[in-house]
Design a protein around this nucleic acid. Structure first.
Lengths: 237, 237
DNA sequence: TCGAAGAAAAATGAATGCAAAATGGCTTGA
DNA sequence: TCAAGCCATTTTGCATTCATTTTTCTTCGA
């Protein structure tokens, strides 16, 4: 059984069988459930995803499950090998570089657009998040820092007033979830202070609504994250 | 029969039944065939896509077709209404604004990355395309101009050395294909010269490998295209 | 004549069945 | 002992079938 080598059956079930029945469409439920399951990193890279087992676990037939797998493959979370089933997509260093570059481009866009549309109240909210994050930084509370960091970037994306951008951002963000968390652990060692300073520049440019400048800061912020992430991966094969 | 109100059955068939059998996976063939069919604008906005008819037309069963439809829905080309089937997704003005903004962000990113990686030979190639495009402009040959325009932007994306970016770009580009063509027809009237000048700036910044500058030019180029496209749509409801 | 109610027809969502391909295990031979 | 080849089992890809919902057509009444 390749799925969940280090997770118990029970935990699989609890994670994989929300199936609330609220979405109306079984296919959609499977899709969001499986996506969450994958994004949360419950399966190791490259693990096989046998249809039969998943069907029994989730209590559905193969048809809607296969539809969900195709969509997840299109999203880049799983890999479909002809006649050989689905695997958890493993990202190599080049994939991660590309993902961070695209994320940087999207964040740069979000920053630029946010400066055109953001309200004073939203800026105040981001300020508050920023100060909370700084407090977490001083406390060396990495999980809190990480969560607030995500919230700030999401708030900037939300201020861009572009639903397609927000969706695309969420899509790529989910792919990077695990590696980014690890990268931030790496920050813990030597890049954390630098990242915090970058965030001060981000807030400052946002307050001035300096779109181009914020755009550039965000892009380089993401590139620095990428370097940290790849360094982490290099050290932890 | 809601599908293809103005197209004959025969033309549908010729467009929809390549099914070369080269891809190995029937699902993939249907996917690319349907996507091309939709992108080329063979169906009017909001048209119903009855599964049964498509199955008979393409000679496949509903299972792989439905899988393809789910993927196309995830890509944003079709819209799936619960229990009410698939429709060609119609983009309103806000969708188009959002799409152009994201395209602009992606092109800006591509330009920035391209300046880091592009070779002299690639620049020379783009120069050539640019001059050809200028010739088309002088000849008032809109289709040729349009094709070369696309080639230039694709060359810049290719020079960015980022496959994920290229895929994402292609995805959004396909959604805008129809409206962009119409927008360029609108250019024909009053924005064509301006677009040509913008392209001169693009080439010039690329030659200097001025990443940030090129990034900004490309973004604003796309925003101008957006304005033209929306003006066109405003005039042609 | 028009509109509403209801039944027939069709379409969708999901499950099951079947053939082809792949995986795993077993035997055989050196 | 080990490797190669063959067969059984499993798994995948696709077609078909079934149940439910939607759509359409007909009929009835005002």
């Amino acid at each position: 059984m390749a799925i969940a080598d280090d997770a118990t059956e029970a935990s699989e079930v609890t994670m994989l069988v929300p199936l609330t029945g609220t979405s109306g469409s079984l296919h959609d439920e499977i899709l969001v459930g499986l996506r969450r399951y994958l994004v949360e990193g419950n399966l190791p890279d490259g693990a096989r995803i046998p249809e039969r087992l998943l069907c029994e676990t989730m209590g559905v037939s193969r048809t809607p499950l296969r539809e969900a797998l195709k969509v997840l493959a299109a999203e880049g979370l799983v890999e479909l090998l002809p006649n050989r089933g689905a695997r958890v997509r493993a990202f190599d260093e080049n994939d991660i570089r590309e993902l961070f570059e695209v994320m940087g481009g999207l964040e740069a866009l979000a920053g630029r657009l946010a400066c055109e549309h953001i309200t004073d109240a939203e800026i105040a909210g981001i300020e508050q998040l920023h100060y909370d994050m700084y407090a977490s930084y001083m406390r060396r509370d990495l999980p809190a820092y990480f969560a607030l960091n995500q919230k700030i970037h999401l708030a900037i994306v939300a201020a861009a007033r572009n639903a397609i951008l927000a969706n695309t951002y969420a899509n790529f963000s989910s792919r990077l979830q695990r590696v980014r968390y690890n990268a931030n652990r790496e920050n813990h060692k030597d890049r954390w202070g630098e990242a915090m300073r970058e965030h001060e520049h981000i807030l400052e440019a946002l307050q001035r609504r300096a779109g181009l400048e914020l755009s550039d800061i965000l892009f380089r912020h993401l590139q620095n994250k990428r370097v940290a992430a790849l360094r982490y991966l290099g050290n932890h094969p």
